[in-house]
Nucleic acid binder design. Structure first.
Lengths: 241, 241
DNA sequence: CAGTGGTCTAGACCACGAA
DNA sequence: TCGTGGTCTAGACCACTGT
């Protein structure tokens, strides 16, 4: 059964993909569109919700509905903890970083294998592609592993953070746990996405050769902008002979 | 601003998690709930949509809203292409498989690196945990690589498919591309999830030692039931210095 | 058939953003 | 202030499920 709001979504989608409404342009107001399609505002908003989930339209309360720029998907490269240079370099990602010392809550303490309540360092990195936020990283490290000067010399870790690489010393092993979920309220506002969109969430645990956890990173990416790629080789390394 | 439907969702969620409504039990009808909370049906349905997205409630047209069984998350283990035995074994996953020969559409041909339109084998695997679907896998292989007897002896590949492992010969390398997105309509119905829920989507390309693609697998898991985990060991490459 | 969820309406009122 | 989106209503009608 074809529902009215789906028909409207199809029509608007076709107008957008055909270029009749250009990126960053505002759509007619919902009242105007409801009038044009002869439907109630509720129905028209359901149509827009479809397009919003597809990533075609961005809503701003009080301003209007805007056609989104079609973003190429960037790749998070697993294990190494970097963004694929091919896709990440060109768009020119900019990162803002802030750091604070925080007491380790229970789940963070578990991840880092430190006592609950002990002080750890938190780095919050938000990368933007032009105007639109593109990724959110929260990096947690034990205090003694924070590289000296990292707090003062922000540019030093900026290089690494741009690609979501490791901030401290390179670890010997990393474990990425990937899940698909809805954004938390603060992620939704930080990434400027609706609370009904999808987030690719990655929890990365980095350990050194002794098995100590040197870094725990919580990454959140808008699902329609970032994929994660992991490569596994099943053979014995040739260099061992 | 706290919206009415969120308040109602909070109240119902609390009743469910507190055990006042048990799993697989039916909620009161939407009309009854709307009456109880003194809201319109539209508002009440928005509250239920919240719970549905959270995976707490399952809707069935004509039957009612039911509390879902709380499933522990199972782990898809990257690269190896298996489900973590610890989480997968106990629940007793059951898999139904069907296979057909299909012409390779453009995107499949690209993945498998075969000519567009050439015939390839498609295996569709749907795993269930009890009643509820748990994962959907579509495995594509070149015809000549299908292990002999795989089509007749379904039990042979059933073992592998239960864990989403490789059906053919073990590959030497695998590349997993993970994304978070909304389900396609057929995935939504196959997995019995709402079209507004989240799926963890994995495209896995397996290659042999010559670089030939031996298998391409499209995996779709409900985001609230499956995580994917990838482990990377940073090979110390001192030799090159 | 009765009972359930699914869609839609016409209109009201609230909250936000830019002048 | 005004125009925008966000939430909500009270009721209608349709579609699906089981008896």
């Amino acid at each position: 059964m074809r529902s009215r709001h789906q028909d409207i979504a199809d029509d608007l989608r076709q107008q957008i993909t055909a270029g009749r409404i250009l990126p960053s342009e505002r759509l007619p107001s919902e009242a105007a569109l409801a009038d044009r399609y002869r439907v109630s505002t509720v129905t028209l908003r359901r149509a827009l919700a479809v397009l919003q989930r597809e990533g075609l339209v961005e809503k701003f309360h009080g301003k209007g509905n805007f056609v989104r720029h079609p973003h190429r998907k960037t790749m998070y490269v697993g294990g190494w903890g970097t963004l694929d240079p091919w896709t990440a370099a060109e768009p020119g990602l900019r990162v803002s970083i802030s750091s604070t010392a925080v007491p380790a809550q229970s789940h963070l303490a578990t991840l880092l294998k430190v006592p609950t309540g002990s002080t750890i360092m938190e780095f919050t990195c938000l990368s933007r592609e032009g105007e639109s936020p593109h990724g959110l990283a929260r990096v947690y490290m034990p205090l003694d592993l924070v590289p000296p000067g990292a707090l003062d010399d922000a540019s030093r870790c900026r290089e690494a953070a741009t690609r979501f690489a490791f901030l401290g010393t390179p670890p010997t092993a990393a474990r990425d746990t990937v899940s698909a979920r809805f954004p938390t309220p603060d992620e939704a506002s930080a990434l400027r996405i609706g609370s009904a969109s999808v987030v690719l969430s990655i929890t990365r645990i980095a350990t050194d050769s002794t098995g100590r956890v040197v870094e725990a990173t919580l990454l959140a990416f808008p699902g329609d902008r970032v994929d994660a790629v992991f490569t596994t080789h099943h053979v014995i390394d040739e260099r061992q002979k």
